[in-house]
């Protein structure tokens, strides 16, 4: 792949921003005048782009001729949409009653510190997104957390470093 080019272009074989926007434009043009198409467009745009930054919402609003406040209204209504970039891995810490009581909150504090982000955000290197969840169904072995599809039980905050090192 040709590497000298615009700033947004990268050499790792990923699409450039421009290519992603072109793709999204195509999707919009295909769905534009259908009833309720905004949700579908947002879904596909998020798949293409990874998340829905402000600039992308504006792009969609303009191209679909829908007010920006409506586009942002729909994207903040459904939890599946994220306006923050998503990390490569998602960490979900359980905040169910059992986990909360047995140190879930401490896990969150520690992770926030380690990653330099708050719950709901993504680390600067885009490696991790941090979330909390109601219950992972592992109450007997609290506190629990999940990274992508793997559940970690009875997590000791001091072991977090070595857990994250696996990713």
């Amino acid at each position: 792949m040709d590497c000298e080019a615009t700033k947004s272009q990268c050499c790792c074989g990923e699409e450039t921003d421009q290519q992603k926007y072109d793709k999204i434009a195509e999707i919009i043009d295909q769905y534009k005048n259908r009833e309720g198409s905004l949700i579908q467009v947002l879904h596909m745009a998020q798949t293409v782009y990874g998340y829905l930054p402000m600039e992308l919402l504006k792009f969609i609003a303009k191209r679909m001729d829908i007010p920006l406040s409506e586009v942002s209204g729909v994207s903040t209504f459904y939890p599946v949409f994220s306006m923050q970039p998503r990390g490569k891995h998602t960490i979900k810490v359980c905040m169910g009653t059992a986990c909360y009581v047995r140190g879930g909150k401490k896990l969150v504090d520690r992770l926030e510190n380690m990653l330099g982000i708050q719950v709901g955000e993504t680390s600067e290197d885009r490696k991790y997104s941090l979330e909390v969840v109601r219950c992972l169904g592992a109450c007997g072995l609290a506190p629990a957390m999940m990274i992508d599809e793997t559940i970690y039980k009875q997590v000791n905050p001091d072991k977090l470093n070595s857990i994250l090192a696996k990713y």
């Binding site: 402000m54 919402l57 829908i66 007010p67 920006l68 406040s69 409506e70 586009v71 942002s72 209204g73 903040t76 209504f77 459904y78 939890p79 306006m83």
Partner: peptide, 25 residues
């Protein structure tokens, strides 16, 4: 703002308890 004026500045943002009527983001 949306139906009478068709400008579309104000709309419901967020969901559930966090719902507010406001501008985009």
């Amino acid at each position: 703002c949306n139906d009478i004026q068709k400008v579309g500045i104000l709309n419901a943002q967020n969901s559930g308890f966090k719902t507010v009527v406001g501008t985009a983001l």
